[in-house]
């Protein structure tokens, strides 16, 4: 009985995450289309300029996204090695994210080795990192999710988005609340993403990952594998009184 309920919640969470990826897959396809037939290292900003209107429209309709855009892999763009076509929602409207991408600057925002980027590149599947305070980039607490852009077998970058963790909480918590007992979702770094009870707070870290000690939990289930997230249902808390 519990197993069925948990399985159904896991499926719902998986579907919701897949929905959330749809605009990223759409953007990845368009970037791949623009990059097709262009020699390695010859892609220019003007080849992608038409995507700005599309990205803006997506951002306007999708409240869960703080930002959305394309991050180029090394050696793809003609003008520069690090290149972002990344639009962000701000208090004053939607605008292009401006960060330090100057090539020889030691403080360059080097995203090539950031988990969301390198994870998508390495595993050739979506990746998600966070929540983290992206001080140099988004400038507040976000989760960054990325889908690889492939032209044939060539990796040209990622279509990515920053997600508002409050929006994640808004749809995830009710699903956790519906489970028979106290439940939480935790990432691979042991950080709590959301919880159906006041026992754990988002952003806190568990001492031990549930998957490493499943005997302490009623149920421990992996969510969509690319997320590295785990859903855990607690044993009823023992009354120590």
């Amino acid at each position: 009985m519990t197993a069925d309920v948990v399985r159904s919640a896991v499926e719902q969470i998986g579907r919701r995450l897949e929905d959330q990826l749809a605009p990223l897959r759409g953007l990845a396809d368009q970037v791949a289309h623009a990059a097709q037939g262009v020699a390695v290292g010859a892609l220019r900003e003007k080849d992608l300029a038409h995507l700005i209107a599309w990205i803006t429209a997506e951002l306007e309709s999708e409240a869960a996204y703080v930002s959305l855009g394309f991050a180029a892999a090394s050696g793809v763009m003609a003008e520069r090695d690090h290149y972002l076509l990344w639009l962000q929602r701000r208090a004053g409207g939607i605008g292009r994210l401006r960060i330090n991408l100057s090539q020889n600057d030691p403080d360059l925002y080097d995203y090539f080795d950031m988990e969301w980027f390198s994870g998508a590149e390495r595993r050739k599947e979506p990746s998600i990192y966070g929540p983290y305070v992206d001080y140099a980039g988004a400038d507040f607490l976000v989760l960054t999710v990325a889908v690889p852009v492939q032209v044939g077998s060539r990796f040209v970058g990622v279509a990515g988005a920053d997600l508002d963790p409050d929006e994640l909480e808004r749809w995830l918590v009710p699903l956790l609340r519906a489970l028979p007992g106290e439940a939480l979702v935790v990432n691979g770094d042991r950080s709590v993403l959301a919880s159906g009870s006041a026992r754990w707070m988002p952003g806190e870290r568990l001492a031990v990952h549930p998957a490493a000690a499943p005997e302490g939990w009623r149920t421990v289930v992996e969510l969509s594998p690319w997320t590295g997230w785990t859903l855990a249902l607690a044993e009823p808390e023992v009354d120590r009184a």
């Binding site: 701000r90 208090a91 004053g92 409207g93 401006r98 330090n100 600057d105 925002y109 140099a136």
Partner: peptide, 22 residues
């Protein structure tokens, strides 16, 4: 100081920057 904005970079117009910061 931390180099988040590159040296020599032009700040957006005041009206736009004010909007960004709200």
């Amino acid at each position: 100081h931390l180099g988040l904005i590159a040296d020599g970079e032009q700040l957006p117009p005041e009206v736009e920057l004010a909007q960004q910061f709200g």
